[in-house]
Design a protein around this nucleic acid. Structure first.
Lengths: 142, 142
DNA sequence: GTAATTGCAAATACTTTGCCACGTA
DNA sequence: TACGTGGCAAAGTATTTGCAATTAC
């Protein structure tokens, strides 16, 4: 995990961001939880709550998203979710419409072919996609 | 188109909604535009702007979403998008991250197999999914 | 030293609700 | 008549920004 932290921070540095305590704690929090989190969740998480202001977390996430280090996800809630974007990794999510739990889908994503095709037929550049499954989880349907 | 309107209204009636002018104009607007639209867009569209209040459109959309007649989409903007859910129809969307344009993808959605598999392996019920492609459209990359 | 980063407070944006009047069935 | 629906205005929630002080490089 700490080696992951260093890798991510390294990428931040390479993009011109400064190594601040807030940045480290934010990245650490995302790594530790390994799931998409909202701004509010992040700002109130143990590592960050007394470390920095919510506006700081917001602006950090904004910069990290710009640099392609985190991704901002829709996920249907009113609040946006943020997840680290590790190189070579793509995640789809499975979300319970009842309790709101979010888990990554561990199956190869079947969309890459179509993505290439779209890139080719429409001329869109820099394509990426977001795929979410919604349903009622076993616990909630009981 | 009017026959589509009647069909949709019929489904609304079957779900216990009353046939009001606002409902008709809302459904008509969604049919005519055949793309996801935000609450604000809808409320300010020609058919609705002088017809009813934004709160009314909001509550209509809420009811229609409850009944499965429209779907609320994330689409990454701050505002939620709404689209009619026609029976047997599934749509994926292609969105320009620059200008925000949204167009439906006309290719068969490659996700249904995986969806079934997830339903089987995770025990989630009533699965559906949302798939969006993001990129820079030809006009914006010029 | 200089430019990026931060905190705090205020402004926006979008959504949601309360309450009472009204219209549809 | 009865209950779903509608208008208006106000409250709620999440995001975003201004500006002066601070910090990393």
């Amino acid at each position: 995990m700490p080696e992951n932290l260093d890798k991510v921070i390294e990428r931040c540095r390479a993009e011109g961001l400064r190594r601040t305590k807030a940045l480290e704690e934010l990245v650490m929090t995302l790594l530790e939880n390994s799931r998409p989190m909202t701004l509010a969740e992040l700002a109130e998480s143990p590592r960050l709550t007394n470390q920095c202001d919510k506006a700081t977390v917001f602006r950090l996430l904004q910069r990290l998203a710009d640099k392609g280090i985190v991704r901002r996800l829709g996920l249907h809630e009113r609040a946006a979710y943020f997840a680290l974007l590790l190189p070579g990794q793509h995640r789809d999510y499975l979300i319970c419409t009842d309790c709101g739990s979010i888990e990554p889908v561990n199956a190869p994503c079947p969309v890459h072919e179509l993505e290439k095709e779209i890139q080719f037929t429409t001329g869109y550049k820099n394509l990426y996609h977001e795929l979410e499954f919604f349903g009622t989880c076993p616990a909630c349907s009981a």
